[in-house]
Design a protein around this nucleic acid. Structure first.
Lengths: 159, 159
DNA sequence: TATTGTTATACTCTATAACTATA
DNA sequence: TATAGTTATAGAGTATAACAATA
């Protein structure tokens, strides 16, 4: 492993792993890896859980609404929900008010799996935040919320 | 438990957008969107900048080393570096010590583009962190660093 | 005419395997 | 035999366009 000393300059502009973008991205990936590993025994990915959670909390009911909240294309929603429905976790019901729309609901088994998944994720989150004091953990979560609200607002343009 | 009611329960387990995983993921995506938009005029993606930054800071020199630091497969590195080399930003030089290895270096134009890119990203970061006090911004970055170090250590197993 | 869900298609990113040239 | 880079190929994930049913 002899270092090639082609590069005389050790660090002209900070270290590559100090950049905010690097940190945020890899913290995300680390959390996602941990989540996917914890959810695998339940047959869910963290992506699946996002969808199931939106249905469980009633934040949205139609396929496109759910996708919009999570940044998932409506065409991708079809395959995901096909899968979750085939496995008996969710149910599509035509809306009585607008028969174009599918109202999504969890089956009893879907509800059980969702509760199990949230318990697993609570463990993942606790382990993930363990290196921070409980004060710093709260501050961290609050900072994320603040940054996301500001960024989403900026995306839609100032005004 | 007769909770066959479609959406009787408004929020049995918190809101979907309060989950740590959701927050971290979407903060990452928002920062990446802002970065990609700021770098587009330079012809770089945030992914490109990651590679260029590792080369510029001398953190790694061979293709596989760079990929390992950033979590990019060696086969993906080939196409990325082909592109950056075609555009005259990086140069592959066979290592004199091990002629299987390519030592990557920035061309003068690559160095200029890299400096421009870091300036753009500094603006993106400042805008992104603007909703936090400078104290909270520092705490936020420190928390990210702490979490990432702990998570990466855990990935490799305790011990 | 517009919208929801759907299908088909393409394009990007990533993952696996095999090849070459070096070691 | 093992490794760095490369190529080919297949697999996800996502995006675009078109279609059917409904509004």
């Amino acid at each position: 492993m002899a270092d090639d000393d082609v590069t005389a300059d050790p660090s002209p502009a900070g270290r590559y792993d100090e950049a905010l973008g690097y940190l945020v991205k890899h913290v995300h990936l680390a959390h996602q890896r941990a989540s996917d590993a914890a959810l695998a025994p339940l047959g869910l990915t963290s992506r699946d859980l996002g969808v199931v959670r939106v249905i469980a909390t009633g934040a949205a009911t139609s396929q496109q609404e759910i996708g919009a909240l999570l940044g998932i294309d409506r065409t991708s929603m079809v395959a995901m929900l096909d899968d979750l429905e085939d496995r008996g976790l969710v149910r599509r019901q035509p809306s009585p008010h607008d028969r174009r729309r599918n109202v999504l609901a969890l089956t009893p088994e879907g509800e059980r799996t969702y509760q199990d998944a949230e318990r697993e994720i609570a463990v993942v989150d606790a382990k993930f935040l363990e290196p921070l004091s409980s004060n710093d953990s709260r501050r961290f979560a609050r900072a994320l919320r603040t940054l996301l609200d500001a960024a989403d607002g900026a995306d839609r343009g100032p005004g």
